[in-house]
Amino acid sequence: MAWFKRSPWILHYNATSCNGCDTEVIVSLTPLYDLERFGIINTGNPKHADILAVTGSVNEKSVQVLKNLYDQMPNPKVIVAVGLCAISGCVFQDCYNVMGGVDKVLPVDVYVPGCAARPEAIIDGVIMACEILEKKYREQKKRRG
């Protein structure tokens, strides 16, 4: 795992989720599934975070909050859309207040399917996000010379 040099921190934001995927994200960070063994911690501060894990679909009120969080995170950053609601809206696609998935607002790098997404899938998604993060670090380093 030579590419896994850094331990990114996750910022988890719940847009209009039903909490199912949120519970599974929290569970991924606790003893049985333990993302923390990789050094990945759940942080509350956007300026400390590398990965933004978003659950739930997007409605008008969460657009502003998501953009706010995204702007506060330092580069390079990765967005993970956890659960079907964040990908496309799940059963709530036709609702009047749901705009759709997170990619309507932010550029998503990793999509984790499931309703609710299983912890194993979430871990897979976060590891994939770490790989993408490493790639972005290298590109950023090249650009800065």
């Binding site: 719940n14 409605n59 009120k61 059963v91 709530f92 609702c95």
Partner: peptide
Amino acid sequence: SYVHRGLERLIEKRDFVDFVHVADRICGL
């Protein structure tokens, strides 16, 4: 209203048998 999805109007689009799946997803806990 950060989490307002407006799912009560989904009864117009899904019949009463299918709506159980929406009712399941009102809240995960």
